[in-house]
Design a protein around this nucleic acid. Structure first.
Lengths: 342, 342
DNA sequence: GACATTAGAGTAAACGTTTACTCAAAAGCT
DNA sequence: AGCTTTTGAGTAAACGTTTACTCTAATGTC
């Protein structure tokens, strides 16, 4: 049988209020002596307060939710670790919700979190957020921090990297290495990050006065298979590519597969650049040149922002936080020395 | 303001009991007409039952907990996905707890789960379970399913692979390829899987009448870095190794690093076999020969077993479930053709 | 020494559900 | 027609806390 606060109170010969005060470390109203006695009893009987009863009366909890689309994508465990680490430093627990890229499931998780009085939510979804989810979020009173998307609702903050600029940087780098025919493999077409990165691609082309060619770009799912399919399609077009910028690392890995199955070597036959710098990037051969995102830090910081909002320590200025990225130059890009300099 | 069951009852002109019956789909006691009206109101006012109030009175929840040591280890996201998929099929939610390989944190999560009236727990920890955790588990009334460890407590079931046999199989395979000097890189020395796999290693040596040599085995953390360090140590001993069996894939990846930094090529200079068959195994070059675990299925099945226990559908026979493994032969093992056959 | 403050503790309402009981009306039986 | 059963619904207790109030005795102040 579970031991309750009433049991402890009875055994200690005090009221439940006193026990409650002790257990919650209220500074007032209990003598040191009584405190000690009660703690001892708590230990002895292994009393654990019911989170349900507590939540019911306080209307809140020490739980934050993390909603992500796919834990199987190596980007997310790292993000989750960041969130969880900060949260647990502050005495919060984290509930991880894998929406599985399914708007219904995501919505059901959102309900679940609300029903459990979570105090805040860190939200990431690379796809566009469904109208229903968004309106629920908007009408709910729980603060939300969006990672890597820009959603403007009152109680929320955003936290992201400069996707557009970073991708432009990639193209400039490839250009500097002598590449002129640069392809682009994008993610799902409603993906915020993919859209932004594509803009960066076009920005750079314009800057460099390279005409944009539709046939050099192709889209796919944010998975290895998606990258592989997209890569094969792109390569099969025979458009004289010397390099391709891929929208994320797991797709880039798929690109490696595509090249291998078509008998092409990286970087001799074609150069590849990824995005994210997941672990795998430096493990595959050739090591993948990619844009490093501070994934762990983003998770950590997003929990930080969220808990600050929760506890009313909202930063006055700079509601959003933009993280820096870094181009990690490794072995998947070839320098084209013979390129005719203009 | 949150809308409660009382609000709905008032608006509908019925008692809260009736609303409760409708919302919980109780088959009896409410006319179709009333049902319809209430559902409509629920929609309209976006009524969400308080999980806290409900949990408080029922003393239970539709939540299962998954405790793992490190979500960053690519084995676990897949396991988690399996658990989560089955759970959500059955209308349960999953709380993922990353114990971070820290007994204190793990214990704190366990308390957290209990306080929240979770109905069951899927538990994995590659290290030995701390005495405190174990006793808490033993005295608690929530059913537990242990994945990949063999813990005998009443309310629990175990679910694992034949680590010992599988590793023996690896050694036999290496032997068949002509290898005689086979090293072993193990995980943490209190890790169940590592211990079992080491037994398999010794079993095979004995079967094959190869004398066991202490200097061919070395241990490390279950991380890439751990594998790399262990690999360097082992290689630096100059003991004439031709092959090494590594206790898991991320350590094997570390072994790749070690070889590279020492200027050795796999498999020409040394053959490597891993364990787990995580995604990375087929992405690194040379592709890693490894033992495939049905990770997703294990997660899925463990949730299945757990929920069966919870719902009283306990299988009569065969309390434990053993999964098959499969040796995935890829490119990291060289056949030694010149070996003197005896 | 009279009064005000404070420390230590108790009382009881409130949180939002579920559910065992109760009850009246309607429906079934013979 | 008189009985029993079923149906639709309401009443109220219970779940385990927190917390605003209240109360008493001790301590402090002038």
């Amino acid at each position: 049988m579970k031991v309750t606060i009433t049991d402890i109170a009875r055994i200690a010969g005090v009221s439940v209020a006193t026990v409650s005060r002790v257990v919650n470390n209220k500074s007032k109203g209990v003598s040191e002596e009584t405190r000690k006695k009660i703690w001892q009893l708590v230990e002895e009987y292994n009393y654990q307060p019911s989170a349900m009863a507590r939540g019911l009366v306080t209307g809140t909890s020490k739980i934050i939710g993390l909603i992500i689309p796919d834990i199987t994508n190596p980007f997310y465990p790292v993000l989750a670790k960041g969130v969880e680490d900060y949260a647990s430093e502050k005495g919060y627990h984290m509930i991880l919700c894998d929406g599985g890229n399914d708007p219904h499931k995501e919505l059901s998780y959102l309900k679940f979190l609300e029903e459990h009085y979570v105090t805040g939510i860190v939200y990431n979804n690379f796809r566009e957020i469904s109208e229903e989810t968004l309106s629920r979020l908007r009408n709910s009173s729980v603060p939300v921090v969006f990672v890597d998307s820009k959603v403007a609702i009152p109680q929320s903050r955003n936290l992201y990297i400069d996707n557009r600029g970073a991708m432009a940087g990639v193209i400039h780098y490839l250009y500097a290495q002598g590449h002129r025919n640069i392809g682009f493999i994008g993610g799902p077409d409603d993906s915020y990050s993919s859209i932004e990165r594509f803009k960066g691609y076009k920005d750079a082309l314009q800057d460099l006065q390279i005409p944009f060619r539709e046939e050099l770009v192709v889209y796919g799912e944010y998975t290895t298979r998606g990258g592989s399919r997209a890569g094969q399609l792109l390569l099969s077009r025979n458009v004289g590519l010397t390099a391709v910028a891929v929208c994320n690392d797991i797709m880039a890995v798929g690109m490696y597969d595509a090249c291998e199955s078509l008998g092409l070597t990286i970087p001799e036959d074609i150069s590849v650049v990824g995005f994210d710098d997941i672990n795998i990037a430096r493990l595959i051969r050739p090591k993948l040149t990619t844009v490093k995102q501070p994934t762990y830090e983003m998770g950590y910081k997003s929990a930080n922002m969220l808990i600050d909002i929760i506890e009313g320590k909202q930063h006055k200025v700079g509601h959003d936080k933009v993280f820096d990225t870094e181009l990690k130059i490794r072995d998947s890009v070839k320098k084209l020395i013979n390129y005719d300099r203009s």
